[in-house]
């Protein structure tokens, strides 16, 4: 079953098309990686799909609900971990988790239970009563993803989730993301090719707002004749090797 069906999705700012007639289908439980250089339209696509901005044209159905005509229903099923860690700095890990759970309509008892469970799952148990601003970068990223998961979303958007993390923290986060595969449909944006190779089921390459290639890593390598994903990406993005 398809989780996301995008048809001719377009977002224009004046004459500039940040997302240009994008069409794509993502299956339920799939981890789909969006690759592109800065300004290619990845983040705008995520903002459109998560109902943060309205499209200029086209539409997308997330588990059957349109982002144009039924954004409220879409919001009930999705969550996002933005590029920045986006945590409440002066709240503890537990309070952050309980806050988001409450905002998504969970009663106090359920919210606290879920907060405990997710903290345990994401290795945040020992920092449960630490203020978010005192966590390391890696721990803040973990919290950010845990916050996105506490509403039990069916579709999760991860916008450059490992940006600025050291190798060990990145690997830890990869392991957590891998555990989610198959259970939740994930759209991931990143600049790290190894991350894509390690995590994604399929990859989409965006250039100037358009989707120039879609396929598995192996398919993209075959298509371009490149030996590495980075080379394939450069070719498909219109760059020179």
């Amino acid at each position: 079953m398809n989780a996301i069906v995008i048809k001719e999705l377009t977002k224009k700012y004046g004459d500039l098309a940040a997302v240009d007639h994008l069409s794509l289908t993502v299956k339920q439980g799939e981890l789909f990686a969006l690759l592109g250089v800065n300004g290619a339209g990845k983040s705008t696509t995520i903002k459109l799909l998560s109902c943060l901005i309205k499209p200029t044209g086209g539409d997308a159905a997330l588990l059957g609900d349109s982002i144009v005509s039924n954004p409220h229903a879409v919001k009930e099923k999705i969550n996002i971990s933005p590029q920045e860690t986006a945590v409440a700095a002066n709240l503890t890990v537990f309070e952050n988790l309980a806050l988001i759970a409450g905002i998504y309509g969970q009663d106090s008892k359920t919210a606290k239970k879920h907060a405990q469970e997710l903290a345990e799952r994401f290795g945040l148990q020992e920092s449960l009563h630490k203020k978010a601003k005192h966590l390391s970068g890696g721990m803040q990223r973990r919290l950010s993803i845990a916050l996105a998961l506490i509403s039990d979303p069916q579709i999760l958007f991860l916008d450059e989730p490992t940006l600025g993390l050291d190798v060990l923290a990145r690997r830890e986060l990869w392991a957590l993301i891998k555990e989610l595969k198959g259970h939740i449909t994930i759209i991931l944006t990143t600049h790290y090719m190894d991350e894509v190779e390690h995590l994604s089921d399929r990859v989409g390459i965006m250039t100037k707002g358009q989707l120039t290639a879609v396929g598995t890593v192996a398919e993209l390598l075959t298509k371009t004749g490149a030996s590495t994903l980075e080379d394939a990406f450069v070719v498909l993005s219109g760059g020179a090797l």
Binding site: S50, C51, I78, Q83, V87, A89, I103, G105
Partner: peptide, 17 residues
């Protein structure tokens, strides 16, 4: 302003608030 620039508001804007 801090909520906006730290993207915390972006997280909340995707919620049913």
């Amino acid at each position: 302003s801090k909520d906006r620039t730290s993207s915390f508001l972006m997280r909340l804007f995707t919620s049913p608030m």
